[in-house]
């Protein structure tokens, strides 16, 4: 069926590839069992804009989101390029297993969908969708998102409250199941470009150990989110 649809799409390309406004519903589910998403930014923008690209260094605004859950900078960038955005649709944290929903009325040139939100507890992990092409054909589409590492901070896994850009540490473990007094997994930031997050290491010590996150609770495997887009 998918192949058939693709063929039809290319046959109709001359009429459907032109830009057009659309009303889209976006349903986002946190698929993890122990990782929270901080306030999400959901934005439809043109193919000349982007919030991030894997393999490239993070912007300062993306760093602020990935290290400290602050989406205001990215939202300003989106507004500056006339994107259609929905900021913080969940009204705060999106808990493990939970879902949120938002709608966008996209203007003609805003044919790409991007989504970001920080993963907690991590140092600079985020759930991300980069410039997914919003289909012009009405229908329901499913996308699975991975966890990325902004490449801006060492993954020391210490819950210190440090969320400002450049300040080491993890802001919080919202589930209340983090540890304290860890010695730190590493103080080296490896790759300095955005990459697939290597995952939390964690340990099983509430007090002490290398890490303040729990290896049995705060790890994850990709994908971390399911996004269902309905083009009306």
């Amino acid at each position: 069926m998918k192949k058939t649809s693709a063929l039809i799409l290319s046959a109709l390309a001359t009429t459907t590839m032109s830009t057009q406004a659309a009303d889209i519903d976006i349903h986002i589910q946190n698929l993890t069992q122990g990782i929270y998403f901080t306030p999400l930014l959901v934005t439809a923008h043109s193919d000349e804009a982007a919030l991030f690209h894997v393999g490239e260094a993070a912007s300062g605004e993306l760093q602020a989101m990935a290290e400290g859950a602050d989406i205001s900078g990215l939202e300003s960038i989106a507004d500056g390029v006339s994107a259609n955005s929905s900021a913080n649709p969940a009204g705060g944290l999106l808990a493990p297993g939970a879902s949120t929903m938002t709608m966008l009325s996209t203007s003609a040139d805003n044919t790409r969908l991007s989504i970001v939100g920080m993963l907690l507890p991590t140092n600079d992990g985020f759930v991300g969708l980069d410039s997914w092409h919003i289909p012009s054909e009405a229908g329901t589409y499913t996308i699975y998102l991975n966890g990325y590492d902004a490449g801006t901070e060492a993954n020391d896994e210490l819950i210190t409250g440090g969320g400002a850009p450049g300040v080491p540490g993890i802001p919080a473990a919202p589930g209340g199941n983090g540890g304290t007094n860890g010695t730190g997994v590493t103080d080296m930031n490896g790759s300095e470009v955005i990459h697939i997050h290597p995952g939390n290491i964690g340990d099983d010590m509430i007090d002490g150990g290398k890490s303040d996150v729990d290896s049995r609770v705060h790890r994850w495997l990709n994908p971390v989110a399911k996004v269902t887009v309905t083009v009306n």
């Binding site: 493990p96 099983d204 290896s215």
Partner: peptide, 19 residues
């Protein structure tokens, strides 16, 4: 947690979970 989710993988004693 009493809800179905994606599995986080196993830790194993080779990765520090000694028990």
């Amino acid at each position: 947690v009493d809800f179905v989710a994606m599995h986080p993988g196993v830790v194993t004693k080779d990765d520090g979970l000694m028990e």
